[in-house]
Structure formats: C-alpha cells, structure tokens
C-alpha cells in the first residue's frame, strides 16, 4: 500500500496504555492534522512512526515496507519533535551540513532565505537558542530536507503570532511547490484548520475521527433553542456536547440528524467550526457537566 500505514499500534508506558489499536493511513501529497489534547498520545504515535521508540504491538509500513530499522524508509521521513535531538554545542550551520550529509540534497538556498525571514543567525549554537528559535530552526530544516513525509509535532511551540503566520505561509507554499506530505500534530487547531485536508482526532490513545476536514464538518451540527425542544429533537442522536445558558440549550450532534423529525420553529440547526467540534469531541465527561 502506498504511503505510511499504521496498523494495530499499541503502546504502554509501564501499566499505562498510551495508544490502543491505532490504525491509520497517511497517503502521499496531502496535509494531515493529528489533533488531540495534551497527553492524548500524539507525540508517542509520531515517535513510533519515525521508529524512535518501539510499540508493544502493531506495525508501521512505508510503501509496503516496514519502517522498523529501515534506513530507506526512515530517510523518507523527517520528524520534528518537541524534544531536541540536536546537540546543544553544535552550530546551526553545521547541523544543516549534517542533515545534508545524511539525507542528501538539502535545499541550502531556501534554508538561508528562511533563516533571514525568521531573522535567525545560523552561526549560533543550538543550545543558545530560545524555545521559539529552536522550533524555528527545526522548522527550517523540516522545510528544506528532501524527505517526502514531514511529521511536525507541535510545530509552533513558542512562536509568536508573526512567526506562526510566516510558518503557515511557508509550509503551504512549500507544499504546493514540492508536493510533500505534511502531518501536523497540534492542539492549536483554529490557526491550522484551513490548511488541513484530512484530520485524525486522537483521544485517550485512540483515533476517534479519521476523515477529510469537509466530510467531518459535514457530519457536525449545532442544534440550539429552548432546552425542552432541543432535547426532544436530539433524543437518541449522537450528542457529543452541550452548551447551556439558562433555558437555552445547544446540543452538538455528530453524525446524521433524523430527517423524519419535525424541526420546531424555535430550534435552529447550524454547522459548528472545527475548533468547536474538536473541543466537544475531546471533552471528558467530567468537563461536560
């Protein structure tokens, strides 16, 4: 099968299960979002895909070949993680050189352009950079590296609004030019939603949503009006969240509405945005109360 195929992944840390029965496919040439709250298992999943840690069960393949201890597959991926794997005493310039040596065909020209745009001095040592600039440096590498699959784990960590904006711009531009596949894991959804084509929502170590952004949004409804009528209308439907303000109630429904039911005049049906949908899908029961 083409692309990265994740099959039956389970991962335990001690007695705690961090990922359970994770199945998904990352096809070439798309921008994916891996959305989940802190601790949902996003980073763990990406680390397993890039063979940095081992799963307890399951397989990861790239174009049908296992990524496990496979130079060829690993060389087609670049995982930018929150954890810094570059040595603090290395100069940024030299790190670019190492990337070129090991991945081949590094786009230096673009890297220097980006460094200028982000006003990053490449003569510095990695350890001297602030959190934001460490992210920026890793982002620059991820945009210039010749790997086909770019996995970004919380890419905008510590970046200010201008730099975030600049990054999204460059990423989409890079995507259009190179046709690379991007997988972006984040809990800051609002800014990135429109750049994504396909999303995976992960909750408590399980994938609860896997679909194209538009299809996912098409299945979401916000039914609001007087509490009694709303409750009647949404009874038996897949209500994933609720907002209440006095007697007014808003029910988030994910899935089909019942077309047989008559919509009372006082009740309106709207389409929530991804951010709202995400919040309601990933809320724990306690938070809903």
């Amino acid at each position: 099968m083409e692309g990265i195929v994740v099959k039956g992944i389970q991962k335990n840390f001690g007695k705690k299960t961090v990922l359970q029965d994770v199945d998904l496919q990352i096809k070439p040439g798309k921008i994916y979002g891996l959305l989940g709250r802190n601790g949902a298992g996003k980073s763990t999943l990406l680390s397993i895909i890039a063979n940095r840690i081992f799963p307890n069960m399951g397989t990861i393949t790239l174009d049908g070949q296992t990524v496990f201890e496979n130079d060829k597959a690993l060389g087609q991926m670049y995982l930018m993680s929150e954890r810094n794997l570059y040595s603090k005493s290395s100069k940024l310039k030299h790190l670019l050189g190492t990337t070129e040596l090991l991945y081949g065909n590094f786009d230096y020209e673009y890297a220097y352009q980006l460094a200028e745009k982000f006003s990053l001095d490449l003569n510095q040592k990695f350890g001297k950079l602030s959190t934001g600039y460490r992210s920026i440096f890793k982002l620059i590498v991820s945009l210039c590296v010749p790997a086909k699959y770019i996995l970004l784990d919380e890419p905008v960590l510590g970046l200010d609004a201008n730099h975030r904006e600049l990054f999204y711009r460059e990423m989409v531009d890079n995507y259009v030019k190179t046709g690379k596949t991007f997988v972006i894991s984040t809990h800051l959804i609002e800014e990135i939603t429109n750049s994504l084509e396909h999303i995976f929502i992960i909750k408590n170590g399980q994938i609860i949503i896997d679909g194209d952004v538009e299809d996912v949004l098409n299945k979401a409804y916000l039914v609001s009006g007087p509490a009694k009528e709303v409750a009647q209308y949404t009874a038996g439907l897949n209500v994933i969240g609720q907002e209440k303000l006095g007697n007014i109630q808003g029910d988030y429904v994910f899935g089909k509405l019942d077309s047989e039911r008559v919509l009372p005049d006082t009740v309106t049906v709207e389409k929530p945005n991804l951010q709202k949908l995400f919040i309601n899908l990933t809320n724990t029961k306690e938070e809903n109360k």
Binding site: Y168, R169, V172, E191, I192, S195
Partner: peptide
C-alpha cells in the same frame, strides 16, 4: 492563482 490564495490565507490548495 490557487497557490497565491492558499499561501496568503493558508488554506489547503485542494480547498
């Protein structure tokens, strides 16, 4: 162009 719009508003090119 599609590219310009996607880049300037970071909207997925497919969209």
């Amino acid at each position: 162009s599609t590219t310009e719009i996607s880049r300037d508003f970071h909207i997925n090119p497919a969209t």
